[in-house]
Each structure stands twice: as structure tokens, then as C-alpha cells.
Amino acid sequence: MTALCGKAWVYGDKIDTDLLAPGPYMKAPLTELASHCLEAIDKDFAHQVAKGDVLVAGDAFGIGSSREQAAQVLVELGVSAVVAKSFARIFYRNALNLGLPVLFCPALANVEKGDIVSVDPVSGSVVNQTKAQSFQCEPIPEELMKIVNAGGLMPFLKGRFTPQ
């Protein structure tokens, strides 16, 4: 996989699933749900985020419900990776299963909104190009990278079944 690169959107600890995919819009189509992503704490995010942008956050990113839409809206909005101090485990699995690289990076510091950040999930290297600083994160385990590289669990499993 080539390095993922984009503007950073920086948030704090415990960005929960209800902030990412708010309950009142859960019945709505994904594009509409995505347009409300994080609106309770940042009204601009869903409208200004661009393809390739990277989310940077603190502890327990994705804590809360099992709703997969919390990761799916980020894919829908073009987010290329999430780098956080730690992740809630269901969110972590959901994200990889949807092909969204998510990296544990307790060392990451000093990133500000708008900094250009690149991420290499295989080596675990995260570079803040704006500030010329690099950080070493936990690489995504090789077994799980197979799922991410396939584009998610569905394409990954495809080979196991004969399509009808």
C-alpha cells in the first residue's frame, strides 16, 4: 500500500460512536448520516474534510456502540486513516473490516489541524510533513493488513465462496 497522506483533523480523547454516527440519523442513507459526522463537536468537519485527510485523536477513539457506520462514515467522507493513542476494540475491528487503516500511536504529538500528515500502515511510520517530524506507531499486523489491502473483509472473503 502506498503512503496515505492528507490534512490532519485533530480531536481529543473518547471520540464516541454517537459523535461519529449520531443516532437520530441512523435510519438515513449513508451520505446523509456522513454529513452529520462529528457535528456535535465540530460543525465544519463533515463539510470541509477532503479525500485523503487523516484523523488524529487521543485515547479510546470509537468508544461506544458497535455501529459500523461510525467507521463507514469516515470512509464515505474520504478519510484515509485514523491515528489515535488507542481505539475501542469494536471500532478497531470494524474499521479494518471496512478497509480503513487505523493505527495505535501513543507517541504522536504536536499535530495541529491542517498539518499535512502521511501514514504508512505497514511500517507504522507517521510523518508530520508540515512540521518535519516523524513518529513510529504500531504497524497493523500482517494478517490484518491482508484484509485492509483487499479493501475490507467482504472482498477478502470473496475467494472463499462461489458467487451465485
Binding site: 455501529r67 475491528r93 473490516n97 471496512l98 475490507g152 473483509l153 467482504m154 472473503l157
Partner: peptide, 9 residues
């Protein structure tokens, strides 16, 4: 608990 894609698997 798991999410929907994983549930499919």
C-alpha cells in the same frame, strides 16, 4: 460485540 461486516463473515 462485533460490527456488521464482521457479522457477515
Amino acid at each position: 460485540g462485533i460490527g456488521a461486516t464482521e457479522m457477515t463473515g
